[in-house]
Computed example of a mutant assay.
Amino acid sequence: MSDEDARDAAGPEGVRLQKVLAGAGVASRRVAEDMIVAGRVRVNGTVVTELGRRIDPESDLVDVDGTAVQLDQSKRYVVLNKPTGVVSSMNDDRGRPDLRQYTRDWPERLYNVGRLDADTSGLLVLTNDGELAHVLAHPSFGVTKVYIAKVEGRVTAQTIATLTRGFDLEDGPIRADKARLLSASNAGDGSLVELTLHSGRNRIVRRMMAAVGHPVVELVRRQFGPLHLGTLPVGRARELTKLERGALLTLSRRGAGDAAPTESQETE
């Protein structure tokens, strides 16, 4: 153990910032020192340039170049490509296939962030970070989700305009943040539509498409905030990369100080 490590272990005032950054996998201690001197590191929102700065990794928030750094290694972040036929629950009381089968590779007790309808496949986040789950799951924080919907009929440009302009459903007005037509059958028997939404109302994509005359045949969520499904196979789960964790934690910290949510958790 080096003299600096010994002081960190014994000192009640915290751990040196460069050691914390190195331990979090940001960079080597020497490179971390260069980052600090260059003004690229913030602690609790304030730029720190002194190499002697000590912090408490359990309570202080650190970011580098505006991206949050995960200091609490007890937190786990997993992305799942949920298949259809699986309910978004860790213990379904009706005996249907649930999410427990996808969490067996991790010792932590993980929970799903929000929900996907049993008939909807795609990106679902599993974590034991309650604060992050609260921010991500609730529409009042404005986290966007991107869906690909296979629908009946030939969708027109006018229909896409209606989706983005907005209209009324039985539970109030709704509009897509973005909408675009990906493909449409010349025979008029089906189309692929991409919808971006931050609303979390129940089965909202299906209800929107039905309201404009194009019921959903298949639905998949491809993106959740900064996370993309990519090439992850259906029914497979993986831990987030360091970059993905940073992006997710940055989003969570920005939303943590917002007002209390006013809508129910999203279900699609």
Rank of each mutant, 00 (worst) to 15 (best):
Q70P: 09
R165P: 00
M35D: 02
E152M: 08
V205K: 00
G235P: 02
R207F: 14
V48P: 03
V151K: 03
D34V: 14
D93Y: 05
D56Q: 10
R203Q: 15
D65Q: 11
A118D: 06
R104Q: 15
V48R: 13
N91K: 15
L17Q: 10
L169V: 07
S140A: 06
R154P: 00
R180G: 02
V205F: 02
P233T: 11
D189N: 14
T159D: 15
M1F: 07
G85C: 05
R16V: 06
T162F: 04
H198S: 13
F141E: 00
L126D: 12
A237H: 10
M35S: 03
V62L: 07
V234Y: 04
T127G: 09
L249W: 02
S59N: 05
H138I: 01
A149E: 08
L21S: 02
Q265R: 06
R254V: 01
K178E: 15
R180V: 04
G39S: 04
P97G: 08
R238S: 04
L124K: 03
G11Q: 09
T241D: 12
G246W: 05
V151W: 07
G95K: 11
A259H: 10
A211E: 13
D117K: 00
K19R: 15
A247H: 05
S59W: 05
T262E: 15
I204M: 04
G45I: 10
T46F: 03
E244G: 04
G95R: 11
D93S: 11
L110E: 07
D92R: 12
L232Q: 01
N202V: 11
D129I: 04
A9R: 14
T67L: 15
D129R: 01
H198K: 04
K178S: 09
L126A: 11
R29K: 12
Y77R: 12
D63Q: 09
A9K: 13
H198E: 10
V234E: 15
A210K: 13
A32D: 00
M209Y: 03
R100K: 14
T159W: 02
D34G: 12
R175H: 14
Q223H: 09
V15N: 02
F167K: 07
A184T: 13
L124C: 10
G190Q: 04
M35L: 15
L51T: 01
D129T: 05
V205N: 01
E33N: 12
V113I: 15
L227R: 01
P83Y: 07
L251A: 05
E13W: 13
A211Q: 13
V143F: 08
V234N: 08
L99W: 10
G66T: 05
D5H: 12
I55T: 09
T241M: 13
D3K: 10
P226W: 09
L116M: 06
R100N: 05
T84S: 14
D171T: 04
E268R: 00
V220H: 01
I36G: 08
S2A: 07
H198P: 08
R54D: 00
T231W: 02
G230I: 11
S74L: 04
A10H: 13
A256M: 09
S264Q: 04
K242F: 06
G52W: 01
A256E: 06
V155W: 08
